[in-house]
Protein backbone atom coordinates (compact mmCIF):
# COMPACT_ATOMS: atom_id res chain seq x y z
CA UNK A 1 0.00 0.00 0.00
CA UNK A 2 1.40 3.40 -0.93
CA UNK A 3 0.95 6.22 1.51
CA UNK A 4 0.54 9.76 0.25
CA UNK A 5 2.72 12.23 2.12
CA UNK A 6 0.95 15.33 3.32
CA UNK A 7 1.98 18.43 1.44
CA UNK A 8 3.82 21.27 3.15
CA UNK A 9 1.91 24.45 3.96
CA UNK A 10 3.77 26.26 1.17
CA UNK A 11 2.74 23.61 -1.36
CA UNK A 12 -0.86 23.89 -0.19
CA UNK A 13 -0.70 27.67 -0.59
CA UNK A 14 0.57 27.28 -4.14
CA UNK A 15 -2.01 24.61 -4.96
CA UNK A 16 -4.76 26.89 -3.64
CA UNK A 17 -3.53 29.72 -5.88
CA UNK A 18 -3.34 27.46 -8.92
CA UNK A 19 -6.83 26.02 -8.39
CA UNK A 20 -8.48 29.45 -8.21
CA UNK A 21 -8.26 29.91 -11.98
CA UNK A 22 -7.39 26.43 -13.17
CA UNK A 23 -7.42 27.17 -16.89
CA UNK A 24 -5.30 30.30 -16.74
CA UNK A 25 -1.56 30.05 -17.35
CA UNK A 26 0.40 31.81 -14.57
CA UNK A 27 4.02 32.90 -14.57
CA UNK A 28 6.44 32.51 -11.68
CA UNK A 29 6.55 36.11 -10.45
CA UNK A 30 2.75 36.32 -10.49
CA UNK A 31 2.48 33.16 -8.41
CA UNK A 32 5.18 34.43 -6.05
CA UNK A 33 3.35 37.76 -5.55
CA UNK A 34 0.00 36.06 -5.04
CA UNK A 35 1.17 33.43 -2.57
CA UNK A 36 3.91 35.39 -0.83
CA UNK A 37 6.35 32.55 -1.57
CA UNK A 38 9.90 33.65 -2.37
CA UNK A 39 11.48 32.29 -5.53
CA UNK A 40 13.72 30.08 -3.38
CA UNK A 41 10.63 28.27 -2.11
CA UNK A 42 8.42 28.58 -5.17
CA UNK A 43 10.68 26.97 -7.76
CA UNK A 44 11.53 23.77 -5.82
CA UNK A 45 7.77 23.23 -5.34
CA UNK A 46 7.06 23.89 -9.03
CA UNK A 47 9.82 21.42 -9.96
CA UNK A 48 8.43 18.76 -7.62
CA UNK A 49 4.85 19.21 -8.94
CA UNK A 50 6.12 19.08 -12.52
CA UNK A 51 8.12 15.89 -11.81
CA UNK A 52 4.95 14.21 -10.57
CA UNK A 53 2.97 15.21 -13.64
CA UNK A 54 0.75 17.52 -11.61
CA UNK A 55 1.88 20.72 -13.29
CA UNK A 56 1.81 21.69 -16.93
CA UNK A 57 4.23 24.30 -18.22
CA UNK A 58 5.02 26.03 -21.49
CA UNK A 59 6.79 29.07 -22.87
CA UNK A 60 4.40 31.91 -23.62
CA UNK A 61 5.56 34.75 -25.85
CA UNK A 62 5.00 38.20 -24.40
CA UNK A 63 2.03 40.16 -25.79
CA UNK A 64 4.32 43.04 -26.66
CA UNK A 65 6.93 41.77 -29.05
CA UNK A 66 10.58 42.25 -28.24
CA UNK A 67 10.31 41.07 -24.66
CA UNK A 68 11.43 37.53 -23.82
CA UNK A 69 8.92 34.71 -23.47
CA UNK A 70 7.92 33.60 -19.99
CA UNK A 71 7.58 30.14 -18.52
CA UNK A 72 3.98 29.70 -17.43
CA UNK A 73 2.24 27.05 -15.36
CA UNK A 74 -1.14 25.53 -14.59
CA UNK A 75 -2.32 22.32 -12.97
CA UNK A 76 -2.96 19.25 -15.08
CA UNK A 77 -6.19 17.28 -14.62
CA UNK A 78 -4.23 14.97 -12.33
CA UNK A 79 -2.92 18.02 -10.47
CA UNK A 80 -6.44 19.34 -9.98
CA UNK A 81 -7.55 16.00 -8.54
CA UNK A 82 -4.51 15.98 -6.28
CA UNK A 83 -5.19 19.55 -5.13
CA UNK A 84 -8.80 18.68 -4.33
CA UNK A 85 -7.56 15.80 -2.18
CA UNK A 86 -4.95 17.87 -0.38
CA UNK A 87 -6.75 21.14 0.13
CA UNK A 88 -9.27 21.35 2.93
CA UNK A 89 -12.82 21.27 1.62
CA UNK A 90 -14.53 24.67 1.72
CA UNK A 91 -16.40 24.80 4.99
CA UNK A 92 -20.09 25.52 5.34
CA UNK A 93 -21.25 29.09 5.66
CA UNK A 94 -20.49 30.55 9.08
CA UNK A 95 -23.34 29.84 11.41
CA UNK A 96 -23.88 30.64 15.03
CA UNK A 97 -22.97 27.61 17.11
CA UNK A 98 -25.85 25.41 18.19
CA UNK A 99 -26.82 25.98 21.81
CA UNK A 100 -25.22 23.41 24.05
CA UNK A 101 -27.55 21.51 26.35
CA UNK A 102 -27.18 23.06 29.75
CA UNK A 103 -28.26 21.86 33.16
CA UNK A 104 -31.97 21.66 33.49
Amino acid sequence: MTRERRCSDQTLTLLAALTQQPRVWRHGYELSSETGLKSGTLYPILMRLSDRGLLDSKWMPHERGGRPARHVYRLTAQGMAFARLQLPAPGPAVRSPAPRPGPA
Binding site: H27, Y43, R67, P68, H71
Partner: peptide, 11 residues
Protein backbone atom coordinates in the same frame (compact mmCIF):
# COMPACT_ATOMS: atom_id res chain seq x y z
CA UNK B 1 14.49 25.75 -14.88
CA UNK B 2 17.27 28.36 -14.83
CA UNK B 3 15.86 29.67 -18.13
CA UNK B 4 12.45 30.04 -16.49
CA UNK B 5 14.03 31.97 -13.60
CA UNK B 6 15.98 34.16 -16.03
CA UNK B 7 12.83 34.90 -18.04
CA UNK B 8 11.09 36.22 -14.92
CA UNK B 9 14.10 38.35 -14.07
CA UNK B 10 13.90 40.03 -17.47
CA UNK B 11 10.36 41.16 -16.69
Amino acid sequence: WAQAMQAELDH
